[in-house]
Nucleic acid binder design. Structure first.
Lengths: 199, 199, 199, 199
DNA sequence: AATGAATGAGATTTCATTCAT
DNA sequence: TATGAATGAAATCTCATTCAT
């Protein structure tokens, strides 16, 4: 096998955690999925505890996330506002899709183990909002306050996040077509940004 | 005490389910919180199983939700688009707040027990989107297709949902001020609805 | 049954701990010996952990010990040195016999869990030496220093202790007859105490 | 390194057995202490089982003991009773000190594995008592019965044994000064041996 | 209606031992 | 000779559920 047992354990564990939650996944299931004898404790050669598997899984996801983020800088400078917004939306949805397991895991465990998951939430969510707010202040024609930028970011990115939160976390499917969603989103946002701020 | 033991069990169980998830909450905890001797099985006088407690809890939440929904009709006819949107936003956030326990519960268990929770999700989420899409088709000046209405609803309501999903489910606090959020949301939405659809 | 399950658990646990050591005794064995289904965890209704069973067992033994100690005062005033020594020796051996389980337990675990057993050792051993040294200073005709009294106590009581330590802890049987041992011990000790201290 | 891995394993294993007991010591700990990779099973190149390590360790201790015993004969003939007793006491304490690991091991495991440890106990304890009883019958001026000699040996050697058993096995420190202990012991014993047997 | 006690099933973790390299 | 990896067995502990009172 080309993958190490340790990697296989992380991969399968994250998949199972995403499917059944942390508590709902047993060490036996992880071992079985990773090709070990279930119940024999083979996992413990590679990790000290079930918690350590979770920590390693989150760490790996965050490392991937960091790699993805490096690409973000390439996306921005296109000149056309609508084109840039479209790219941002596509990128954000793609990023969320690639982190859907982490998202599900965070949703089911975030309140139980804050110490472990605070960092992950920060990386996955908060920083995205901050970055987008920053982009807004630079990009809009009329000057907007930092606070206004943050609120617009919350409303705008919220739409994209909820699309994935509803689907991946709550299991609700509202609409199917990403491209239609994005084009509507871009339309609404550019309408807002280009017209004078209505008191 | 004026509340029956049965009601106290449901109330405390839902609170604990919301905090620690279904699996993360033990019968002993529920009994203790409801004023019964923990571990004595007193809960089983009132419910046949832990699942039955969950079912009763969800049922009660849905009943409250249905009651709330009856008020919705009163809200609509104000004549002014922005005023109506403001009311809708306020109402939606209030409704989500009153269902935050259910929301957290859905997030932690939705994928494991579809039989019990599918209905709840449908009531809480899907119908809200449908209703808002319906309202849109009636209310906008220029005619819009059903599909367009649905997409706009997804984008618009998504902002409001994510505000609560992020806070209550993931534990992230993006912005603090509901009124500012609502006014920005209303501004973006009315800008979209009042201007001609940009192809 | 007239004894409570909790008491039965302590009794059987201490017996098993004495026989096989703390680590060598399993919860299943204790449960089975106490009349519970082995492996069902019924013990945990009465104790939080295996350690808690040990703690309760030691506490009970120490309580018994304290009760025994109250009798000690009755023994002393006989007027005749040899008669008093004989009583002291008999009493000490009896006390050690009634604490043989505790003794074995201390021997096998004392170095692993000092926090739990330090008190027990102090009660069972150190205080006995101190009390006997005190008795010596009062009782001997010629005046002896505190240090001398302590050393004589160490040598004298050591004989009695080792008789039980060897038998109960190491499993060695040196001699059989307690009365012969006591009379020799009394003879040696009175010979020492009555004759002038040879430098 | 000049020591073989096999020797290092025995040395470290006996140290750990003495500290934490046989059951309380894991193969991993022994391997780590012996400079092998813990958990890799390198120990099994040198021993067939954990039991075999214990057996080899005891064997080595007994061999050392036998070597020590050869010196004993040299000690006896000094002519002066007190001088000879002093030597015997010093020798005995030294011997017990050099076997403290074995002593602790016996205390924690003696009752579980008689097949392995019975011999060790016999060598370390019983034979010492026998030898001293034999020495007594030869050395005392007035003739004493074999039984009397055994009882005196039990009382006298018991003092020395308990000094070490209490300290090494139970972890109690009664008195500090070996020389004071020995001189008191010699005093008491010579008083007994030189005066006519009291009734 | 509630409690004390018990139980069956199962979860996490440990560990002596084996095996291919 | 030593190591990385794996396994069978067992140990501690948890918990939903039942039952007699």
């Amino acid at each position: 096998m080309s993958t190490s047992t340790r990697d296989r354990i992380i991969t399968e564990a994250m998949r199972l955690f995403g499917e059944h939650g942390y508590r709902g996944t047993t060490i036996m299931q992880i071992e079985a999925a990773a090709g070990l004898t279930p119940g024999a404790g083979g996992l413990y050669r590679h990790f000290n505890s079930k918690d350590a598997v979770l920590a390693a899984g989150i760490e790996r996801q965050l490392a991937r996330l960091a790699a993805l983020r490096d690409i973000r800088r390439l996306l921005t400078p296109l000149g056309d506002l609508r084109a840039e917004l479209t790219l941002i939306a596509r990128y954000s949805l793609t990023e969320l899709d690639s982190e859907s397991e982490l998202l599900r895991l965070l949703a089911s465990e975030a309140r139980n183990r804050p110490q472990l998951l605070t960092v992950a939430v920060e990386q996955l969510v908060s920083s995205t909002f901050r970055d987008f707010a920053g982009w807004l202040t630079e990009r809009t024609e009329r000057p907007i306050s930092e606070e206004e930028a943050h609120t617009i970011a919350a409303v705008a990115l919220g739409s994209l996040f909820s699309s994935r939160l509803l689907r991946d976390v709550l299991g609700v499917s509202i609409e199917a077509d990403d491209e239609r969603l994005i084009s509507t989103w871009v339309g609404m946002l550019s309408a807002t940004l280009s017209q004078p701020r209505a008191e």
